[in-house]
Nucleic acid binder design. Structure first.
Lengths: 213, 213
DNA sequence: CTATATTGCGAGTTATTACTCGTATTTGAA
DNA sequence: TTCAAATACGAGTAATAACTCGCAATATAG
């Protein structure tokens, strides 16, 4: 409520017109999230977002240069927690444990607002890759690569590819679970872990005859 | 060229005005595919499709009641081969071998036109679930369920959920690979198989300590 | 060839949406 | 209180896209 950013023109000298109301901005972003969740891409219009936020369209365009910028801001907001958790996982645990924690973070992230996560995943790739945020997927991938490097055994030949595959497995499974309305994070985590560690496990003769066929 | 459907009003008695030019229809559907691949959803307009197909918009609307119907037709066309291959896999092989063949079919399907497959996957869920086609995903899932039932060992507790997970793993990995421009189907097949069979493999004590944590 | 029916067409209609701009309101300083 | 700067606003604009409709071209029948 007593947000310092709220009071405009605190120091008129420096930046006369760039001060933003953080509260209003957050409100608009959340409105965008709700619209996307409730109506999908089709209903995701700037007018609808402004109305849901309780502001005029003009205000929206005061804070965001265009619709894509709003979407980018939403992506950034949704992603921030995940990236923090990933950094924490990397710091706290190593090897398989770290991977496990990373899976937990990813599942939690996507379970929080499944529809939204899915739509934003899709949109992230379509957006003009602004150097600002730096692709979320890329950052996640690099975190996995670093974790893999710290796993003595079971380190795959091509860590970059392995990381991309693992990320794809995780995203695919969690998205699908979200669409089916699953809510049991623990169960989902376990299944994702099975797939990912199964993927990592080096082929052993006789482990599964079909794999050698 | 000498398509019997091409000559109109063969029997004016019965159906005076419902004969279609299969050739033109195919042309329009392929144009839709190309537009989607080249310009994504943003450029996917009926006018653009008609132009690429070399017909007037009017003709397009003679063959399809609306844009969604065109999209549905495209989905059906793209899916037909896959569903055939799946049926064939189910007929020819059982258990793990059948699963393996199914993975091969899915990978081949998505590798053929990666961008298109991805977009259509996405669109399939947004379309008003017309009872006509019957969700592709659903049919694939059922095929997997039947295959799982025929696997004596390693049959999971909840086959329906397992099938959904396996489908998600496959879709996720193949989509991601397509986006990265991968073209080596054999390598991708192997990796998908590792994840899926790893997922199926029952937990064994000591298989991976992290899994029990 | 003439008449009739079917198909092909694309300019135009209608609806929607991203975005602007002139005005009203609020804020803060003196 | 008064003034100026900053902010909020939403009706209006321009562009775009789905879809229609009346007419032209073509094919078939007699």
């Amino acid at each position: 409520m007593s947000d310092p950013l709220r009071s405009p023109a605190l120091k008129p000298r420096k930046k006369p017109a760039q001060l933003r109301s953080a509260e209003t901005v957050a409100c608009i972003i959340e409105a965008a999230a709700r619209i996307l969740e409730e109506r999908g891409f089709a209903g995701y219009t700037t007018n609808a977002v402004a109305e849901k936020a309780g502001v005029g369209v003009g205000s929206l365009y005061q804070y965001f240069p265009g619709k894509d910028a709003l979407t980018a801001a939403l992506i950034e907001r949704e992603t921030a927690v995940l990236l923090d958790d990933v950094a924490e996982a990397e710091r706290a645990a190593s090897g398989a444990q770290g991977l496990k924690q990373l899976i937990r973070a990813a599942v939690a992230h996507q379970m929080r607002r499944p529809a939204l996560a899915r739509l934003l995943d899709f949109e992230e790739q379509r957006l003009p890759l602004e150097l600002e945020v730096g692709r979320v997927s890329f950052r996640l991938e690099q975190a996995i690569v670093r974790l893999l490097a710290r796993m003595a055994q079971e380190s795959p030949a091509d860590p970059q590819q392995a990381a991309a595959d693992m990320l794809a497995i995780c995203k695919g499974m969690v998205d699908a679970a979200g669409q089916r309305g699953e809510t049991d994070a623990a169960s989902l985590e376990g299944r994702v872990a099975r797939a990912i560690f199964g993927y990592l496990e080096p082929l052993r003769p006789g482990r599964d005859a079909a794999l050698e066929a």
